[in-house]
Design a binder for these strands. Structure first.
Lengths: 247, 247
DNA sequence: AAATTTCTTGCAAGAAACTGCCGAAAGATG
DNA sequence: CATCTTTCGGCAGTTTCTTGCAAGAAATTT
C-alpha cells in the first residue's frame, strides 16, 4: 500500500467516524503505529485533521468544541443588519449556514414574506420561527463538519431552483475569488451560486484578502459583498473595480 | 475514548444541563473521578466552565434564560432513558420530532454508532451533535406548526427506507390506535410506521387513553410503548392484551 | 548495469502523556 | 464537633510520542 493511498484511507475513515485511534489504523492496514503516527502528523500539518494523543479527530469535531461563543458577534450583527434591506417580499432566496446568516435570520422583519432555501439545520431552524417565511430544506445527508446538507441530493435539489438571491457566508475571499477548504461544502456553494440570479457574500473584514485551498468561484460571479466596515474603505478598491457593490 | 472527545462530551453535557456532577460523568463514560476532575480543571483553566465543589457549572447563565420550559420534562427524561437501550449499534432508525425525542437524542451514549432519519429540524440538530451518529434529513418543505418536513417529498423519501426501528412521539393513543390532529403530520407518521420493521411509541401517561380526530394506525402496528409509569400499571392492560410490550 | 541518493518503513530506547489509586488535607453537612 | 465527601499531590503502570538509526525500495545519476 502506497503512502498516498494510506493517507487517503485515513482521511476517509476520519470523515466516516469523526475520530480514529492510531492503534486501530495500525491493525486495519498492517503497518506499524509509527508509520500511522507519521501520516497523522503530516495530515495535521496540512490542516486536514486534528491530531490528539492516541489518534486524531476530524476538524469539525473540534469546532463544536469551541462553538460556545460566537467569534466577533458584533461585527456579524452589523453585517446582518446591512443585509436585510436586500430582501424583498416574495423573493426566493438561497442561503448557506454560518453564524452571520443565523444572525440575519433572527432580525428579519416579521412582515417579510419570502421563501428561503437552505441546507443548514440551524438556519432552517431560525427561518422556521419566522411567521411569514416558508422554509425549504435542501438535501438529506448532513455533514457533521459543516452542519449542512451535502452530497448529490442537495446539489440536484439546488440545481432545480431558480432563486432571486443567494446569500452566502464565506471563509475567504481575495482578488482571485471565493475559496474554502471543505470539498463537499464547495460543491454545494457552487451550485447555489449557479441557481441564483444574484449573489451576495457576507464576510467579516478579517477574511477579506485571504484564501484557502479550494476555489468556489471568481469575483465575476459575485454581485455584492457585505462586511462590517464602511464601504469606502480602501480595502475594497480591487473588488469595486471588478464591479462588485460593497455595502 | 480520547481525552479530547471526553472533554467535548463534558462541555456538551454542561451546555445541556447547565451543571454537572463529577460522579455522574464518571459513571456515564466509565473513567475514574480523578480523570473527570482533571478534565474539569483543564476546562476551567481554559475558561470554558466554572468548576465548583463536586462538579462544574456552565459559564453562561445566558443559556438558562433561553431554555424554554418543557412540559413535564422529568417524565420525558425518564421515557427517554427507557428508550435508549432499544437502540443498538448500526441500526437504521426513523424518528419523529417532539420534546421527548429531543430529550432522547441528548442522552444517547457517545459511543453509539447508528443512522438516524428524521424530518424534524430540532431532532436533526441534536443528532448532528453526536460524535458517531449519521443524520439523514427527510423531505424539504417544513411545516411551521410542527417544525417537521411534510409533503410528498418527505413521504416518498421515507417510503424508500427500510429501517430497523421507528421511534415515534405521539399525541394520543387509545384502544383504537394512535390518533393525531394535523393531517400533514399524520401522512408522515403513517409512512414512517410502514417503513420500519418495529415501531416504538413514546408518550406521557397523560395521553394514554385519549384520542384525536385523525387516525395514524391501529394498535396492531405498534410493538412497544414507553411511558414514565411502571409497566405493571393496570392502565396498560388493554394494550398488553393487544401484544404491545410496555416499558 | 552499477552506484548513489532519496524516500519509506520498522525498531528500539528514553521522554512525555494519560489514567487510576492512595493518603492527607480541605470543604461540606447535620 | 463528628462525619462524610471532595480535592490535591504524588506515585506507579500503561500507553503514546519522539528521536535516531538501519534496512529495503524507488528514483536518479554515473
Amino acid at each position: 500500500m502506497l503512502k498516498t493511498e494510506r493517507q487517503a484511507y485515513i482521511l476517509r475513515q476520519i470523515d466516516l467516524h469523526n475520530r480514529i485511534l492510531s492503534s486501530d489504523l495500525s491493525n486495519e492496514i498492517n503497518v506499524s503505529e509509527d508509520t500511522i503516527r507519521r501520516d497523522l502528523n503530516e495530515l495535521a500539518e496540512m490542516d486536514k485533521i486534528i491530531k490528539v494523543h492516541g489518534g486524531a479527530l476530524s476538524k469539525s469535531f473540534h469546532s463544536s468544541f469551541l462553538k460556545s461563543d460566537v467569534y466577533k458577534a458584533d461585527s456579524k450583527r452589523l453585517i446582518a443588519q446591512k443585509t436585510v434591506p436586500l430582501i424583498r417580499n416574495n423573493m426566493f432566496i438561497l442561503t448557506t449556514g454560518g453564524t452571520t446568516i443565523i444572525e440575519m435570520a433572527r432580525i428579519l422583519p416579521p412582515d417579510l414574506t419570502a421563501t428561503f432555501f437552505t441546507g443548514s439545520i440551524p438556519a432552517a431552524h431560525e427561518y422556521a420561527q419566522h411567521p411569514n417565511i416558508e422554509v425549504i430544506f435542501l438535501g438529506d445527508k448532513i455533514s457533521k463538519s459543516s452542519q449542512i446538507a451535502v452530497g448529490g441530493e442537495a446539489i440536484s435539489k439546488i440545481s432545480g431552483i431558480k432563486a432571486d438571491l443567494c446569500i452566502m457566508g464565506i471563509n475567504a475571499i481575495d482578488e482571485t475569488g471565493i475559496t474554502d477548504n471543505d470539498w463537499e461544502v464547495i460543491q454545494v456553494k457552487k451550485a447555489m451560486i449557479q441557481a441564483a440570479e444574484k449573489t451576495v457574500v457576507l464576510s467579516i473584514a478579517e477574511k477579506v484578502n485571504t484564501h484557502q485551498k479550494l476555489t468556489i468561484c471568481g469575483l465575476d460571479e459575485i454581485d455584492t459583498m457585505i462586511t462590517e466596515l464602511d464601504p469606502s474603505n480602501p480595502l475594497f478598491e480591487p473588488y469595486k473595480k471588478q464591479g462588485i457593490t460593497i455595502l
